[in-house]
């Protein structure tokens, strides 16, 4: 009975300690879902060719999208550093200038990020459009291509 209680107590202490570590400890620094452009650049040569997620904002006006070749190029910034991204992927519906995005891929020797996967990070804002507002929807060019050919 006493041994049982001890096991239970040790278990509870372990769980609480683990939880405390989660909350106050360093796991927040280790459990990084994506790096920002300036963090990736700070890694220098070590970053080249190693698979990583990169997150930041699409620099307005930097997007070139070729719907025929499914070839997307844009620059991504975190305010401090900027990296050019190249993806052979159709942009998701919400991909546009100034949007938060996360890409999966590798930094090439040429300093261009070769993305195999492209995700849009939505903000926590939900608003109706202003009158006359037309959202920038690049994916529609794909639909049009398919419709005419």
């Amino acid at each position: 009975m006493n041994a049982k209680r001890l096991v239970l107590l040790v278990g509870a202490v372990l769980v609480l300690a683990g939880f405390g570590y989660l909350v106050y400890g360093g796991i927040g620094n280790n459990l990084v879902y994506f790096l920002t452009p300036s963090e990736l650049k700070a890694k220098g040569a070590a970053a080249i060719d190693s698979p990583v997620r990169l997150g930041g904002m699409v620099v307005p006006g930097s997007v070139t999208w070729n719907a025929e070749a499914i070839d997307l190029r844009f620059r991504m910034t975190d305010g401090k550093g900027t990296i050019e991204v190249h993806a052979r992927k159709a942009p998701p519906q919400m991909f546009r200038d100034g949007q938060g995005v996360v890409v999966e891929g590798k930094l090439t020797r040429a300093g261009i990020f070769d993305a195999s996967n492209l995700m849009v990070k939505h903000s926590n804002e939900y608003r109706p459009p202003a009158p006359g507002h037309v959202p920038q929807e690049m994916y529609r060019s794909l639909v049009k291509e398919a419709g005419t050919s």
């Binding site: 989660l22 927040g28 990084v32 879902y33 939505h122 903000s123 926590n124 804002e125 939900y126 109706p128």
Partner: peptide, 25 residues
């Protein structure tokens, strides 16, 4: 942990919305 995850760590999921970030309707 679920509730705080979007504040403690970088996530693809956005942080909690609030009435100030969401239209009243």
């Amino acid at each position: 942990i679920v509730y705080m995850s979007v504040r403690w760590w970088r996530t693809l999921h956005q942080i909690q919305s609030s009435p100030s970030t969401v239209d009243p309707q």
